[in-house]
């Protein structure tokens, strides 16, 4: 069984079926990029993976554990599955350090005080922002905020990271610094599922590309092959429209 096993997932909002039977497998260490037009269900799928959204049918397993099973301890599962959002969602009333150490100290992964600060420092160094440890989110640029959000995720020691259009809210000149952090993570072997409109990033970093269309996986495969020889007119159109 794969590390992340998404099988035949269906999901409707009111009368609109957003996911119409989605099946994707992600192996440990893989970087899977989900692309597609807005409204194709990419973000919804990502939110289903860590249980932010319920599903109507099918099954999602992470490391064998069924996400939407009532018996599953979602909180414990989420400590292993980090998610980074488009809008960063940092806590405005906390410093960078507090943002990072809140969950690890509450969930008792680390002790408060010296150990927590050390952890904050360590994850901040991975995103190149050690010097901002005492700043408030509002004092940072969008790109810096997003890197802190990634660091906050890393502090939980996740085995899987989800990225939901993390560069879409950024000014163009700030996109690069965030993508670089993600590339570093990929190189260090982090398992990642990301929804993105950054086609170059998808092409260069992903181990697998999933093209979603109308609530289904329309095409998937290795980036080189997929971009070079799109099998369906929908993907061909999508690729040409992003250039």
């Amino acid at each position: 069984m794969s590390f992340v096993d998404i099988k035949n997932v269906r999901k409707s909002f009111a009368n609109v079926e957003v996911l119409k039977g989605v099946t994707i497998n992600v192996e440990k260490g893989e970087i899977v990029t989900i692309i597609g037009r807005s409204g194709s269900g990419k973000s919804t799928l990502l939110r289903c993976i860590n249980g932010l959204e319920s599903i109507d049918d099918g099954e999602i397993r992470i490391n064998g554990e069924v996400v939407h099973d009532k018996a599953t301890d979602l909180r414990r599962l989420r400590e292993k599955v980090g998610i980074v959002f488009q809008q960063f969602n940092l806590f405005p009333h906390m410093t960078v350090e507090q943002n990072i150490t809140l969950a690890p100290t509450l969930t008792k992964r680390v002790a408060k005080g010296e150990a927590a600060r050390k952890l904050a420092h360590e994850v901040l160094s991975r995103v190149g922002l050690e010097q901002k440890i005492d700043a408030y989110p509002e004092q940072l640029s969008g790109g810096q905020q997003q890197r802190v959000a990634i660091a906050r995720c890393l502090a939980m020691g996740p085995e899987l990271m989800l990225f939901d259009e993390v560069t879409s809210a950024l000014d163009p000149e700030l996109v690069g610094e965030v993508l670089k952090v993600m590339e570093d993570l990929a190189r260090q072997g982090m398992t990642m599922i990301l929804v993105t409109h950054e086609m170059n990033f998808a092409r260069n970093v992903a181990s697998k590309i999933v093209f979603m269309h109308a609530g289904k996986v329309h095409e998937q495969g290795a980036p080189a092959a997929l971009f070079a020889n799109p099998a369906t007119p929908e993907l061909r159109n999508f690729i040409s429209s992003t250039h």
Partner: peptide
């Protein structure tokens, strides 16, 4: 809502989300 979700996604309990994520900004 996104603030609450961010708290949940970090593995906090409902009470912890209320206490640490919602309370102070709401009071302000």
């Amino acid at each position: 809502r996104s603030q609450i979700e961010a708290g949940q996604c970090l593995g906090l309990t409902r009470f912890q989300v209320f206490r640490h994520v919602i309370l102070l900004p709401a009071l302000r």
